[in-house]
Design a protein around this nucleic acid. Sequence first.
DNA 1: ATCCGCATGTAAGTGGTTACATGATTCG
DNA 2: CGAATCATGTAACCACTTACATGCGGAT
Lengths: 181, 181
Amino acid sequence: MTLSRIILGFLSIQPMSGYDLMRAFATSAAYFWHADKAQIYRTLARLVDDGLARTEVIAGTHAPDRVLHHLTDEGRLRLRDWLAQPGTPQSTRDAFVARIFFAGELGDAELQSLIAARVAETTAARDALERIRAQTPAADPATDRAAWLRAMTLDQGIREHQEHLAWLERLRNGIEGAESA
Amino acid sequence: MTLSRIILGFLSIQPMSGYDLMRAFATSAAYFWHADKAQIYRTLARLVDDGLARTEVIAGTHAPDRVLHHLTDEGRLRLRDWLAQPGTPQSTRDAFVARIFFAGELGDAELQSLIAARVAETTAARDALERIRAQTPAADPATDRAAWLRAMTLDQGIREHQEHLAWLERLRNGIEGAESA
DNA sequence: ATCCGCATGTAAGTGGTTACATGATTCG
DNA sequence: CGAATCATGTAACCACTTACATGCGGAT
């Protein structure tokens, strides 16, 4: 359900192919939603079946055909309904934090190596978001609210990764301190 | 998979019934993992089938029977394997942030009411975590690392909720500023 | 020639949610 | 005496992941 509405959201910005959406989920949407390509193609097919999107085939000139998906009027209405709906409280799931919670029995070296791997992942994710932000013109809430809201979610994504890195650093220091004590 | 390992993690602290686990997921684990009761009972049954846990029925004296689940030696090994494994990068999913990302077409009032609802939710979640922390004795990494790691995840949960509230406040202010301009 | 990126999808399996079901105890 | 909480589970459905599958064009 949420995935289908997020796809409608992207189509409301511009018509997109399944592949375009894959890239959107891997980049701009990475901070708030993840979607697999199998899911994307399946969901697009359902949106077309339900009349919320329609397809337009662009013959490949020097590339494979692209199947562009346009939002229909019905689709735009449904998107709006979803946007205005107060969300059901979301369900957090983070396997790394779960590991740390139960990691009392692990040795110092194992813990530090888990943390180091996570630092690398988080840094890469933050840098990817920062690269997107660098390509995005500054936006003002009064003149272009849609762009401003997108910039605000991006900023928050970067900030959260930054906070997460600070936490990992505190963990690292705590373990080191205990080791030398 | 991750759910089954988290359950092993809880059983490694103490034997628990399905109901105990439900409460654990609703309280101490709320920050990093959510699990439905149907899932919990199904997964517990599978752990027993696979020999990673065993049951002990406690006859109810003035309450229904409880089925306590104990970790087996095999279960403890598998838990350790999972803990030491470098995690597959997790997949974020937050429907609220997704809404904000696409909410350009919503009116000020609708946006503010979405934000207000989220502030209420997040405040409640943060307060619930703070109540748990208040009941938890301070832990030191050198003396009781397991307790210290649990306290660190709890702290980080609280801090993230706090950060989220600060972001919601910036959103609120931006919308208000644009309105009056 | 070979690899990488573009572009599309299907099939099978696993994980997660919602609705259905039951019955005792405790508190107001 | 009614509602909430404790305690257990099942069935059906829906969402998500992983592996399989194909083929073109451009770069090295």
